[in-house]
Design a protein around this nucleic acid. Structure first.
Length: 376
RNA sequence: GUGGCCGUAGCUCAAUUGGUAGAGCAUCAGUCUGUGGAUCUGAGGGCAGUGGGUUCAAAACCCAUCGGCCACC
């Protein structure tokens, strides 16, 4: 996997790049739609590619391991073939699910013992078996098995958690070195920086992670409830210790404003459930601000959802119709909202990329941040 | 026609049996950050079928009347 920087902003740390994977090129900064169980909820793969212009999507090791199970995916020839997506895929390791889904869990040195949220069965995830699982999935980018500290988190607990994540990272890397891809293409590991909101821990973690010289690095443990300015401060700080020539992935972020602010801090890759999840709950993101489509104010607003997005959905359906679909609890509402929001996110990062390349990023970003915060 | 039961929020129904009406759903609005069609939070909404009466006090007791359901003739 190769990363090339093709443009940089003079007034910020923003950069534009190209990331080459076995399944094609990714232009950064990029937003990666989340497709946890092998589907970006409510969106066809064809729409994802043609209308939304997604360049890479996410899958989740934990969810896919539970359903349909790795034997099915192996027999299908890997996740790409199974779901019908020939562009790059990144899989999360399941570390976050241990933090967010499992009620009863035991974090031990060996790994994590927890119960399936589907059938309650006991599972053991270790750095080694999570690498094996991602080998079977055949994702282009595989994530290290980490522990995501909650927020707030005491210093001592954050330190312990970070150190465990580092020991697990060492094991992930060793295990990958002694195993081969299941399919005939390259997979690359992104290690994850942790350390909660403590600058010394974050620095230590960023330096530890950097020392492995992986093809890309990720920042985890943010956007878990801390204030936005803390998130920006940590992101900025961590980026200063991560190699410039490698892509940086900020996990789980965020709002359109978060994306722009973090691009300015030097982030290249994002993923977030917000455009799809909030979309399913009626929230639409646009260049002019956000709208809650369930609101009565749209009842007789027959203007197009967003004429600037040429995806055949935002520039086809009216606000009044979409509101009706939401109120009537129609499946089409979720589809329209998801396609729209993802289109907007991809449009936004692509616009940012162009602005970085033509040297007008910061002024544009500052203007956009104000506009995006508006509630319509 | 006679007898019985019932009428409380938009809907379905509560209220320790006289002490100045609540819930669920719906509506309206908010929440949502490595997935959650979920969840949670808040708000609006009742001349108690109608008209009388008893009482310090009535959704509750009495009378009349209207409407609905059931049984009998």
């Amino acid at each position: 996997m190769k990363f090339k920087i093709v443009g940089a902003d003079k007034n910020s740390s923003a950069r534009a790049g190209e990331l080459k994977t076995a399944h094609g090129k990714i232009e950064t900064p990029i937003f990666m739609p989340v497709g946890t169980v092998g589907s970006v909820k409510a969106v066809y793969q064809q729409q994802l590619k043609k209308d939304i212009k997604a360049q890479i999507i996410l899958g989740n090791t934990y969810h896919l391991f539970l359903r349909p199970g790795l034997d099915v995916i192996r027999e299908a020839g890997g996740l790409h073939k199974f779901i019908g997506w020939d562009k790059p895929i990144l899989t999360d390791s399941g570390g976050y699910q241990v933090f967010s889904l499992a009620e009863k869990r035991k974090v031990k040195e060996e790994g994590v013992v927890f119960q399936s949220h589907i059938d309650g069965s006991k599972l053991l995830f270790t750095p080694e078996n999570v690498m094996d699982k991602q080998r079977v999935l055949g994702s282009d980018i595989i994530m290290a098995f980490d522990e995501c500290a909650p927020y707030p988190c005491e210093y001592s607990a954050a330190k312990q958690s970070m150190e465990l994540t580092h020991r697990w990272l060492q094991r992930c890397i060793s295990h990958l070195k002694t195993t081969k891809p299941v399919y005939d293409f390259e997979q690359t590991l992104f290690p994850i920086v942790q350390g909660s909101v403590y600058k010394d821990l974050r620095r230590q973690s960023a330096e530890t992670v950097s020392s492995y010289e992986c093809n890309g690095n990720a920042i985890g443990g943010l956007s878990v409830g801390e204030p936005a300015d803390v998130m920006y401060e940590m992101t900025d700080w961590v980026c200063s210790f991560l190699p410039k020539e490698k892509p940086r992935y900020l996990m789980g972020v965020g709002t359109p404003v978060n994306l722009l602010e973090c691009i300015a801090l030097g982030i290249d890759m994002f993923d977030c459930v917000m455009p799809t999840r909030n979309g399913r709950n009626g929230m639409l993101f646009t260049e002019q601000g956000t709208m809650n489509m369930k609101n009565k104010k749209w009842e007789k607003d027959f203007s197009l959802i967003d004429d600037t997005l040429k995806n055949g959905v935002s520039n086809f359906y009216s606000k009044a119709y979409l509101r009706h679909l939401f109120v009537a609890d129609e499946i089409l509402a979720l589809q329209i909202a998801s396609v729209h929001n993802l289109s907007f996110y991809l449009w936004l990062v692509n616009k940012a990329r162009k602005k970085i390349i033509d040297g007008t990023f910061t002024s544009w970003k500052n203007k956009m941040v104000k506009q995006l915060a508006i509630r319509l």
